[in-house]
Design a protein around this nucleic acid. Structure first.
Length: 375
DNA sequence: CTGGGGATGGGGCCC
DNA sequence: TGGGCCCCATCCCCA
């Protein structure tokens, strides 16, 4: 296997020269002779469990598939396509690549594995009636489409079985809004939860940072704790690819994935460290855009991008310049604005508008009459 | 130049 | 303990 940075790939034209090394995608160049191009399949037909098909290199000593769950591509159950969506063709931009017969066979094989079991089909569609008021401006169906209105019924059944927003079993009966900043995500690290009972904290012995779960602490120690770097001498699991040392084999295995990049796209060879990264990447091939804006019907492959897009529908954006009061939908836009000379020296670089759901505060601290909603 | 979309990775949490 | 999922940030590119 040849691993190379993306700049030299024929598939990637982006310039990552200014991108941090860790953010530069790594491509795995396939030693495969070129084959005559074939007609690309319709994106709507490619909403498959592709990411499950990443494989490991022979020199990779990791197991074939670390996942214990079925692929979750259809977490939303909403799969807009060119044919069925009112979104203009330019809105859903499908990359005009051409597929080899090998890749088409691969895609077809993926589709055959999509047949749901009766048990899977019986899984109920998630409901979000318990979601906090904060989200009411942008109904959760928008970010978490639960009904595949644009798909055939069988498709709907198929893709509703593993909704991403399926409320965890612990969420029934509906929990308090402050416990559900987002489905499946409880903000406990910020320590601002006002009603939740105090749970024991797991503190990092090196930097004193505390976490609500042991796994949170573990991941912190694995990757993020700079203070722990100096105390690693007592740890015994070292990475054979770099100088990193870890206290547990599990931590080392997780780290090694960043070297081996076991999640490999069979269509372009690009490799990723995490399956869900590959999942998102595969959407760039299939054209699958499960997240649609109900304001303009534009569809997105990534929920985060939809969230950013929703900002464009707000008159008052999430990020505000403290100097001139102008608001921006993205931090990067505000940064550019400040670089242009609007920022007041010594003042805060920007003003985060709390009514748009601050990242570290629960919805309970927000006014219900907030006029803009970031999510 | 600005605003927006596409793509990707980190941090964190739950199961 | 690890997998999976989430939100968020940030990058590049393009209109």
């Amino acid at each position: 296997m040849l691993v190379e940075e993306s700049q030299s790939s024929r598939f990637v034209t982006k310039n990552y020269a200014h991108c941090p090394l860790k953010k530069r995608p790594v491509l795995v160049r396939e030693e495969r002779p070129a084959t005559p191009p074939t007609t690309p399949p319709h994106p709507a037909h490619l909403a498959t469990r592709l990411y499950h098909d990443y494989h490991y290199d022979t020199e990779n000593d990791e197991p074939e598939n670390l996942s214990t769950k079925p692929e979750d591509l259809s977490k939303t159950g909403n799969y807009p396509s060119k044919a069925s969506s009112p979104v203009s063709a330019s809105a859903i931009k499908v990359e005009p690549r051409e597929w080899t017969q090998h890749q088409l066979d691969y895609l077809a094989a993926c589709r055959t594995r999509l047949e749901p079991t009766p048990t899977e089909l019986a899984r109920p569609t998630p409901q979000y009636a318990y979601l906090p008021t904060l989200y009411s401006s942008y109904p959760m169906e928008e970010l978490y489409p639960a009904t595949p209105a644009l798909s055939p019924p069988t498709h709907a059944q198929l893709y509703s079985r593993y909704s991403p927003a399926s409320p965890p079993s612990s969420c029934s009966p509906p929990p308090c809004p402050e416990d559900l900043r987002s489905p499946g995500s409880v903000s406990s690290d910020s320590g601002v939860s006002v009603s939740a009972p105090r749970r024991p904290r797991y503190q990092c012995p090196d930097c004193a940072k505390s976490y609500s779960t042991y796994s949170g602490l573990s991941k912190h120690q694995q990757y993020h704790c700079a203070a722990a770097e100096g105390s690693l001498a007592r740890k015994s699991f070292s990475c054979k690819y770099c100088a990193k040392v870890y206290t547990s084999l599990g931590a080392l295995k997780m780290h090694i994935r960043t070297h081996t990049l076991p999640c490999k796209c069979h269509l372009c060879g690009k490799a990723f460290s995490r399956p869900w990264l590959l999942q998102g990447h595969i959407r760039t091939h299939t054209g699958e855009k499960p997240f649609s804006c109900h304001h303009c019907r534009r569809a997105f492959a990534d929920r985060s991008n939809l969230r950013a897009h929703l900002q464009t529908h707000s008159d008052v954006k999430k990020y505000s310049c403290s100097g001139c009061g102008k608001t921006f939908s993205r931090m990067s836009l505000l940064s550019k604005h400040l670089e242009g000379g609007c920022g007041t020296p010594g003042s805060s670089p920007y003003e985060y508008r709390p009514e748009t759901l601050p990242p570290t505060h629960g919805p309970q601290s927000l006014p219900h009459s907030a006029t803009i909603h970031a999510y």
